[in-house]
């Protein structure tokens, strides 16, 4: 702990390049250690104090505000290329306290504490009166929508059977009545199109994750599901040195490559028009 009488700290500008460098190391730390949910990006540096360390180095105490992006933590896309979740999509902010040790010009994290919270319903209503708010992830309609979407995905998929990993975001849309859900999946050793019991399928040793967005629309006499999934390239199990760019996201279509590209679904949370097609609607 750096605190104590007689110790003098300096307070650089929050927008100093050195402060920003420390904040970006903190952001990387968050995104590499989040067990679920979405990557966060730096929004604002609130405060910074720099304490001298004995025998050498400096300790940066830094408070930062972050914002949720649209990239799931399992998505290998670098956070710099991830879009920030917009207010009308019901943004989520993070509030973090970090301590980073700077030694020989390099930062390392020694302490981290973050809380995240969704924007208030009132703020969402200010920018969009009709936009749906975030729904509890264990809501029965949300869970049903995710399971129905995954079943539809597996039924159309020529590759591995995928299991539901995590429901990461959901919104209940009043008009037209529908449930929008985002979830992650994990590949198994079963073939998707074969009718197999999920209990008999094993997760692949070399994990293959996917991220899906789905809308379950209630119709007269039934429901209609639209789902797009992006399956991420399998990451090597060993930590061998990788060539430059090897960690970048490489979308792998897992459905019929002749299928038409994704039409806009009109659901919240989808990429803006003009985004490159990275998956297929089933």
């Amino acid at each position: 702990a750096p605190h104590g009488p007689g110790l003098i700290y300096r307070q650089p500008n929050c927008d100093d390049p050195e402060t920003e460098e420390a904040a970006l190391v903190a952001i990387d730390y968050i995104n590499q250690n989040l067990p679920w949910g979405y990557k966060h990006t730096l929004n604002q540096i609130d405060e910074v104090k720099v304490w001298p360390q004995q025998p050498s180095g400096e300790l940066f105490e830094i408070e930062i505000d972050t914002l949720e992006t649209t990239c799931h933590v399992l998505d290998p896309t670098p956070v710099a290329r991830c879009s920030v979740r917009q207010l009308k999509e019901h943004a989520v902010e993070g509030d973090c306290d970090f301590q980073l040790l700077k030694l020989d010009g390099k930062f390392s994290v020694v302490y981290a504490k973050c809380d995240s919270s969704p924007d208030s319903a009132e703020d969402v209503r200010k920018v969009c009166q009709d936009c749906p708010l975030l729904a509890p992830l264990n809501d029965t309609r949300v869970v049903h929508a995710a399971k129905a979407a995954l079943a539809a995905f597996n039924a159309q998929n020529n590759g591995s059977n995928f299991q539901l990993e995590e429901i990461s975001r959901a919104q209940l849309v009043p008009l037209p009545p529908s449930t929008y859900v985002e979830f992650t999946v994990s590949g198994t050793d079963c073939v998707a199109k074969e009718a197999t019991e999920a209990a008999k399928c094993n997760l692949l040793a070399e994990k293959q994750y996917g991220f899906c967005k789905a809308t379950l629309s209630e119709k007269l006499g039934g429901a209609e599901v639209a789902v797009t999934c992006m399956v991420f390239q399998t990451q090597p199990v060993s930590s061998q040195p990788q060539p430059e760019g090897a960690n970048e996201a490489v979308p792998t279509p897992v459905v019929d490559p002749d299928a038409p590209p994704s039409p806009p679904l009109g659901a919240p949370g989808l990429p803006p028009a003009g985004s490159p097609p990275d998956s297929h609607v089933l």
Binding site: Q11, T41, Q44
Partner: peptide, 27 residues
Amino acid sequence: TVVQPSVGAAAGPVVPPCPGRIRHFKV
């Protein structure tokens, strides 16, 4: 003789060191 009235040093806007700039939007 025209005398320039004394003018104080041009004071630019004072930028507080913290908090820093907002990169996206405030929630």
